[in-house]
């Protein structure tokens, strides 16, 4: 497949099967890239077991003060929108965990007393599973925002088929994840919880103008709130994946469904072809 297509796999609710779908789709594609954007809890590498050839520390700048230069003028602390700075007895106090690394304080300081110091935010690793390039990043424990890691990850999109495994929810990490996506595959489960969160992530992708379709996962033949939502809201249903205890066991053991099952190999090859087709039309 020579064509360039970036597919983001999302869900709103956690645990609907995003990673299971993403890793299996990536593994059936030829010469594709898999990017795990769930930097808080990355799991794709547990299934794909890539041979890592490069690791890179991603850093973020935080201010430090040179007390000899700082005269306590308060220009920086008055201007800081996040209130990450305070001045007491002409001495500057810095609250790095509140700082958003916007860079304004260095710019404003008339004494040049603020220095930007790079701090580690996490590690980005690159590896191969056969011809599949596997990229993932792990946010350092205690760091609030993985957005810079996601930015670093998606800067590696190299063309061809790229499968992005998204974080759960519909917040800032998800915006960042889908910024460069051409198509969003929403994985939903049949429950009312699943339906509520599908609606949220569907609103988000619509707001961002991204074409999307839903994969109904863990269907049982009974009532399916997510299916009803999709039908009522003009969201295309691209495929259905019935609940399968064997698949649950395979996945919980960290194995790929396509490895032990011709059925699933065909299923995911077919799903990928359908996504490419649907994305082309959109």
């Amino acid at each position: 497949m020579a064509e360039n297509l970036t597919i983001a796999v999302l869900s709103g609710k956690g645990g609907t099967g995003k990673t299971m779908v993403s890793v299996n789709l990536a593994a059936v594609a030829t010469g594709a890239t898999y990017i795990d954007c769930d930097v808080e809890e990355p799991n794709g590498h547990l299934f794909l077991k890539p041979k890592v050839f490069e690791e890179e520390t991603i850093t973020i700048g935080k201010p430090e003060v040179d007390q000899r230069r700082c005269d306590g003028c308060k220009i920086c602390s008055d201007a800081c929108a996040f209130k990450a700075l305070a001045v007491v007895n002409k001495k500057l106090l810095i609250f790095p965990e509140i700082c958003h690394s916007c860079g304004l304080c260095y710019h404003l300081c008339p004494q040049g007393a603020l220095i930007e110091v790079e701090q580690s935010l996490g590690v980005l690793s690159k590896g191969y599973r056969d011809d599949l390039l596997v990229l993932s990043a792990e946010l350092k424990i205690g760091e609030p925002s993985g957005v810079p890691l996601i930015k670093a990850l998606i800067n590696n999109i190299k063309g061809g088929i790229t499968i992005i495994d998204g974080p759960p929810g519909s917040g800032c990490l998800v915006h960042e994840t889908i910024a460069r996506a051409d198509f969003c595959l929403l994985v939903a489960e049949p429950t009312r919880f699943g339906e509520q969160n599908l609606a949220l992530v569907h609103q988000l992708v619509s707001l961002m103008g991204k074409p999307a379709a839903v994969l109904l996962n863990k269907t049982t033949g009974g009532a399916n709130a997510s299916e009803e939502y999709a039908k009522a809201n003009g969201l295309s249903i691209i495929a259905t994946l019935p609940w399968d205890g064997q698949l649950a066991r395979t996945t919980s053991s960290g194995d790929l469904a396509i490895d032990g099952s011709e059925h699933y190999r065909q299923y995911f090859s077919h799903l990928l072809a359908q996504i490419v087709e649907e994305a082309r039309r959109a």
Binding site: E41, N43, L46, S252, G254
Partner: peptide
């Protein structure tokens, strides 16, 4: 948690986050 390799990997990270606080 849930009994999967993902569940355990994620559990370790969230436990570390809680203990840090």
């Amino acid at each position: 948690s849930e009994p999967s390799v993902s569940g355990l990997s994620d559990l370790r990270r969230v436990v570390a986050s809680a203990l840090q606080l």
